[in-house]
């Protein structure tokens, strides 16, 4: 960290959907103090915003911080400057993925990927397929610990093994296609 830079990273973030508010932050810390998961963030929510403003691109994008965001939106509700931190953190996540950063100590990106994969395939989340995919690409042995939970869900009909597709799957495909176009254009 520390190299003085032209203000490229702040600009980059502010142009990503959700990142527009990054320049408005006055570092009051309300987001951190409102965050139920702040204690596990590598850098606190307000700190990660400060780091963006300090052009610490690598440190920000490789950090696990924003991946800890639970989308409870408490910070967004309370932020006195309308920074919309929740959206900002998700913008940082998408930038990190786009640029191939692998955050340490978190498998949240893998979870997200499997979630989206399941949606793209069926139009809805299939818990079984999503979690299988997740454990396969992280730690298959961890799945063993979940067997009793899985059994309970199965026996109550809460987790069908085969996924049903939604009606109008083709329409959803169109929506996703359009979304990708829009994001690509950014």
């Amino acid at each position: 960290m520390g190299k003085t830079q032209s203000m490229n990273f702040v600009k980059e973030v502010s142009q990503v959907l959700g990142g527009e508010g990054v320049n408005l932050c006055m570092q009051c810390g309300t987001c951190t103090a409102s965050c139920p998961s702040a204690h596990i963030w590598e850098y606190t929510p307000s700190e990660i915003i400060a780091m963006v403003r300090a052009e610490m691109r690598d440190e920000v994008l490789s950090s696990s911080s924003m991946w800890c965001c639970l989308s409870c939106y408490s910070c967004t509700v309370r932020c006195p400057r309308d920074v919309e931190p929740t959206n900002l953190f998700h913008a940082l996540e998408s930038l990190a993925v786009k640029h191939g950063y692998k955050p340490k100590n978190t498998s949240t990106p893998v979870m997200y990927k499997n979630f989206v994969k399941s949606i793209k395939k069926n139009g809805r989340v299939s818990e079984f397929q999503m979690m299988m995919g997740y454990y396969m690409s992280t730690n298959p042995f961890a799945a063993l610990g979940m067997i009793s939970v899985a059994w309970n869900l199965l026996s109550h009909g809460r987790m069908p093994l085969s996924a049903k597709k939604i009606k109008g799957k083709k329409d959803l495909d169109k929506i996703i296609k359009k979304l990708n176009e829009v994001r690509g254009a950014q």
Partner: peptide, 12 residues
């Protein structure tokens, strides 16, 4: 009172 001491980046 919940706040962040932003100077030491700690939620207090």
């Amino acid at each position: 009172v919940l706040c962040e001491d932003t100077l030491v980046r700690k939620k207090i």
